[in-house]
């Protein structure tokens, strides 16, 4: 196992506003995402596809990269930009598990527990992560807003059980005894 920050650079916290800041936006305070550089990026993406709809997944990624999650306001904004209806966009958002429909912790920790990893002790790794982050249960965010731990289906790193993903970075071969060290590097 290579600790985070080793092989592929450090574990970044997402470059978005502090936790929850965009989480409670309402009609009056919603700030559009698809402006300036983000809009330019979307325009570049649109050139690749013969339809506007095809830019939907990339556009939602742009939103999540900027805001940390995809709010209903953002769905409506993306819908308008791509000439879709908000209901359509929501149907797509809810299909894909990686788009957060709620704000998540600063470090979003996904632990693979599918059978191959489970056979290698993934459940104990989950327990250790919940304990050390203070999340308490899967899907909830720790009281300090730093961590959200979820179970994830096969991360495609089965040979290096148990892989966990912290934001954009993989950490492989995580065993319960390594959890506190890994988390210490994030705090």
């Amino acid at each position: 196992m290579t600790p985070p920050g080793g092989e592929t650079g450090s574990v970044h916290s997402p470059a978005h506003a502090p936790h929850g800041a965009a989480g409670h936006s309402n009609e009056e305070s919603y700030q559009p995402v698809l402006l300036g550089g983000v809009r330019d990026e979307l325009n570049r993406i649109l050139e690749r596809y013969p339809t506007k709809m095809a830019a939907l997944l990339p556009a939602l990624w742009l939103v999540q990269d900027a805001r940390g999650w995809v709010s209903e306001h953002s769905m409506a904004e993306v819908a308008q930009a791509l000439e879709l209806t908000p209901a359509y966009v929501k149907g797509v958002v809810t299909f894909y598990t990686m788009y957060h429909q709620h704000p998540v912790g600063r470090y979003f920790v996904q632990v693979c527990t599918t059978s191959p990893c489970m056979a290698c002790g993934a459940e104990d790794t989950v327990a250790a992560l919940l304990r050390h982050t203070g999340c308490g249960e899967l899907g909830s965010t720790s009281p300090d807003g730093k961590f959200t731990v979820i179970e994830v289906e096969c991360l495609g790193a089965c040979g290096f059980a148990t892989p966990i993903m912290i934001n954009e970075e993989f950490v492989e071969s995580v065993t319960p005894d390594k959890v506190s060290t890994i988390l210490a590097q994030l705090r």
Binding site: L57, P58, W61, Y96, T97, M98
Partner: peptide, 12 residues
């Protein structure tokens, strides 16, 4: 020859 990445979003 144009090649683009299309990034998935979590769906087996």
């Amino acid at each position: 020859v144009n090649i683009y990445i299309h990034k998935g979003a979590g769906a087996y």
